[in-house]
């Protein structure tokens, strides 16, 4: 019949008094919004942050090239971390679903370990502790490997929830067609599981990008690190960090939006969206 949401239904066809309140409320809110924007701009002005010397270097190509190289650093690390997460995650999931209990226990332990600690802690491990044990890593790997493994643990659970969401009948059908275990899994179950979880995987990618920010801790040249250099060079904190914040938001927003659009199109079954809540542990 109708695909109305609860939000819409609550205030549909309001009575006269509610309609008046809505009109008044809208006017007040619009004014408040304008006042807020004005207040922020005013604060910028009063603190002298609108002065040209804080912004003029943005007119130079070199500034943007530097920021761009930072962005590329972010994406390079994120892409590799994602690749690690997707492959290692598959291994973890396979271990998790194994019938052999030592393997299953080991997989559970690894998964709980890698997603139970902050990625920053893992980065510190690579940055502070490993070198003293003789392991030398480039700053790129100091960021990428921990994030990759951390995300792999989450991805393993995402894969698993996808597999569990595939209808029981699929396995029955495959088995009755005389497919063996491997074939059943890789030709029938897993492709469907993947299709269910693509939106969740994209959401994990957003988290990966957010984690790459820690690259500045190990002075890996991603966006945050380069921003700090610009800040040091031009002594312009607010504008630089503002621009960088906007870049991160735009990047992650487009990833999130794609994820949500795919979620609508692929129509993950109800069981899956419940599991999804359990998986996304990141508050940033």
């Amino acid at each position: 019949m109708s695909t109305k949401s609860a939000e819409e239904a609550l205030f549909e066809n309001p009575d006269r008094r509610t309609r008046a309140l809505i009109r008044v409320g809208t006017a007040i809110a619009a004014l408040a919004m304008l006042a807020l924007i004005a207040a922020i701009v005013l604060r910028f002005y009063q603190a002298g942050q609108l002065a040209p010397r804080y912004w003029e270097f943005f007119a130079w190509g070199s500034t943007w090239k530097f920021l761009l190289s930072g962005l590329i650093g972010t994406l390079a690390s994120a892409a590799m971390a994602a690749a690690i997460a997707l492959t290692v995650g598959l291994v973890f999931m396979a271990g998790r679903l194994s019938k052999i209990w030592p393997i299953r226990w080991a997989a559970v332990a690894l998964i709980e370990f890698f997603r139970g600690v902050p990625s920053l802690l893992l980065i510190y491990f690579c940055f502070l502790i490993l070198p003293s044990l003789g392991f030398k890593m480039s700053s790129y790997w100091m960021v990428t490997l921990p994030i990759g493994l951390n995300t792999a643990a989450v991805v393993a659970e995402v894969y698993r929830s996808g597999v569990l969401a595939v209808p029981r009948g699929q396995r029955d059908a495959a088995v009755s067609l005389a497919l063996n275990g491997w074939q059943t899994f890789f030709d029938v179950i897993f492709p469907q599981a993947i299709r269910y979880v693509v939106p969740s995987l994209l959401a994990q990618l957003v988290i990966v990008v957010k984690d790459t920010t820690f690259g500045y801790v190990v002075t890996y040249g991603e966006l945050m690190q380069n921003a700090k250099v610009l800040v040091a060079n031009y002594n312009s904190l607010v504008p630089v960090y503002l621009i960088v914040a906007v870049i991160y938001c735009l990047l992650n927003y487009s990833l999130s939006k794609t994820s949500r659009a795919l979620n609508n199109r692929m129509g993950a079954p109800a069981t899956l969206s419940k599991a999804g809540g359990r998986l996304n542990r990141h508050a940033g």
């Binding site: 990008v209 957010k210 503002l242 938001c249 992650n252």
Partner: peptide
């Protein structure tokens, strides 16, 4: 939701003082 937490923290600690 989309800004990295540590970036937000750095803005609050280091950039906001410039805005008094």
């Amino acid at each position: 939701r989309n800004i990295p937490s540590v970036a937000l923290l750095i803005i609050i600690v280091f950039a906001l003082p410039d805005l008094n």
